[in-house]
């Protein structure tokens, strides 16, 4: 009877690990799109940009005036930024759960401290820099 819980635990671990891998890949794909959007925005904002450009969305090419296309691209960028941040937080949460399952809820060593709010360099002006050894 103690054989079954072990099996469930393993499946749970694998599920969490799979989630983390999927999210990692999603972040990479989103970042690729973000960079492409950025390059597009840059080329549209130069003086030699055409008055109307083709915008690809949902399997269709739509011909729109360039300022509209720019607005759409910027909106897409902010969406992607928000999505990437959400995915990163979710990855952290899953990694924490994974470690809690692996080594017991009290022994979370690798992920300790990552739930703190980040400090920027300005805040750190009064602190020494000593990386933890773990």
């Amino acid at each position: 009877m103690s054989y079954i819980p072990l099996q469930i635990d393993q499946a749970e671990l694998e599920r969490l690990a799979e989630d983390i891998m999927i999210e990692k890949q999603l972040v990479i794909d989103l970042d690729r799109r973000r960079n492409d959007n950025r390059v597009a925005l840059r080329s549209l904002s130069t003086a030699t940009a055409p008055k109307k450009s083709h915008f690809f969305a949902g399997g269709l090419f739509i011909r729109l005036p360039t300022p509209t296309v720019q607005k759409l691209l910027i909106k897409d960028q902010t969406n992607i930024d928000g999505e990437i941040n959400r995915l990163r937080d979710s990855m952290k949460e899953h990694a924490r759960e994974l470690e809690a399952l692996e080594s017991g809820a009290g022994n979370v060593k690798r992920n300790r401290g990552f739930d703190l709010k980040g400090m920027r360099k300005e805040d750190l002006s009064s602190i020494a820099r000593h990386p933890t050894v773990e």
């Binding site: 972040v27 970042d31 401290g113 990552f114 000593h130 990386p131």
Partner: peptide
């Protein structure tokens, strides 16, 4: 991975430091 990364580092410093 992605080009634009978010790096997080956890430090432990003592009050004396």
């Amino acid at each position: 991975g992605e080009l634009q990364k978010r790096k997080e580092m956890v430090h432990t410093v003592t009050l004396h430091e």
